[in-house]
Computed example of a mutant assay.
Amino acid sequence: MLPGACRADPARPGRPQGLDPVVAVEMTRIAVIRNPKSHGNRMNPPGPTPEGVRLAEPFGRDALRTVLEDFAREGLDLLVIDGGDGTVRDVISLLPHTFGEDLPLLAVLPSGKTNVLAIDLGAQREWRLEEALNAARQAEPRIKERPPLRISWTDGHRPCLQGFFFGVGALVKATNLSQKVHKVGFFHNLAVGVTIATATFGALFGGARDEWREGVPARLTLDGQAQPGEERFAVVATALKRLPFGLKPFGAPREGLKILDVDAPPRKLLKALPLVLSGKAEPKLESMGYRRRDAQNVALAGCAPFVLDGEVFEGGELVITLGPALRFLVG
């Protein structure tokens, strides 16, 4: 298997056919991956871990993989991820290589700064480990499925990533800005709002070559069809249905891999932005350089860096698809 592949590790066989899903039986094998440096855990340190629940606080990808391999070897019914979007991204990126196809049920405790996935799942900000364990004990636990985005480099020299919110161009700049926003005390939806407002102000009133308006090299191909243009203000992708503040840049909530593709420099932004963010199906957006698309396979070339769930990564020749749906326990 190529190093960049994200297929299930053949050493981890899937659940034999004919067995009931794990949610049909009592969940007794439970583990927690906790990021002690996440905003919520630093502000409100968790209490003692309940007896019988395994806790790990690995530092770094190699340590995390070792922990997940141990959990997979011993067997796991429920894996609780106690951290922000970045912690979720790191865990789910390693699941195919550690658990193979026999994935445990997941639960996300919104302990990060923005918690976009938790918002989409409808998790309350106060949802902690005790509430998650109580939810798991229900006779019919509530489960939601979400397929992650799968980001692969075509050279195969880097392991693929899995996450839920991808962007190049303006999204990378906004992410770098958000780190400063967090340092002055804005978190959760407020941090998202301040970042969007500041980025919008720069894009509205900067010149054509202003840092907020200029494009990045990004050649886009959707399901084998090359899209016009070699520079873009932004390309954004997700498989989520709900975003903070009810924003709907991809249009009406729906299943699948959704794309927002914006020309550089953005045209008539003051007029287009409310239409884009509200999700309105306005045909004139296309002529203004704002395109919403659905795709199964996305290719992106140009080497511009990209952001995935709040962290910036080195760009390159990328392929974006949907991974198998993950099951999340919700309250």
Rank of each mutant, 00 (worst) to 15 (best):
W127V: 15
R209C: 06
R327G: 13
L322C: 13
A234Y: 01
R12V: 04
I196H: 11
L109G: 14
P48F: 00
E286W: 00
F71E: 11
V25Y: 11
G60Y: 00
G323S: 09
L64Q: 05
F205N: 03
S38Q: 02
G224I: 08
P305V: 04
T114S: 12
G224A: 05
A272N: 06
P36R: 02
V25K: 14
V192W: 05
C160M: 00
D77S: 13
D263Q: 12
A135L: 07
R327D: 13
F165W: 11
I196C: 12
P274A: 05
I259R: 04
E286F: 01
Q225E: 14
I196N: 13
L117F: 05
G323P: 06
L285E: 02
I119L: 15
D261A: 02
D294Y: 01
P45C: 01
A132P: 12
V25Q: 14
V32T: 09
V181P: 09
A197R: 08
T98A: 04
A31S: 06
L55N: 07
S111F: 11
A218Q: 00
G112K: 05
T195W: 03
L300W: 00
E131W: 07
R158Q: 10
G256T: 04
D309K: 03
A325I: 06
T175N: 11
C6M: 10
L78G: 13
D9K: 00
A123R: 15
G193C: 02
A218F: 00
F99H: 03
G207N: 07
L220A: 04
W127P: 15
H97I: 11
K280M: 11
Q162R: 15
P253K: 14
H97C: 13
R327P: 12
V108W: 13
V108S: 14
A8G: 09
A272W: 01
R89L: 04
V23I: 12
K113Y: 12
T87E: 07
E314Q: 08
L68V: 03
L55Y: 04
E126R: 15
R89M: 07
F233K: 11
P110Y: 09
K268G: 14
E51I: 06
T28V: 09
R150G: 04
G100M: 01
V330Y: 12
G224E: 06
R89V: 06
P283N: 08
M288Y: 07
C303S: 08
A199R: 07
R137S: 14
G251R: 07
R213I: 06
P253N: 13
A264C: 13
L161D: 10
T198N: 09
S111G: 15
H182E: 09
A5Q: 13
F59P: 08
V23H: 11
V236C: 12
T195E: 05
G207E: 04
H97P: 12
A226G: 09
Q162I: 08
F233A: 10
G206I: 04
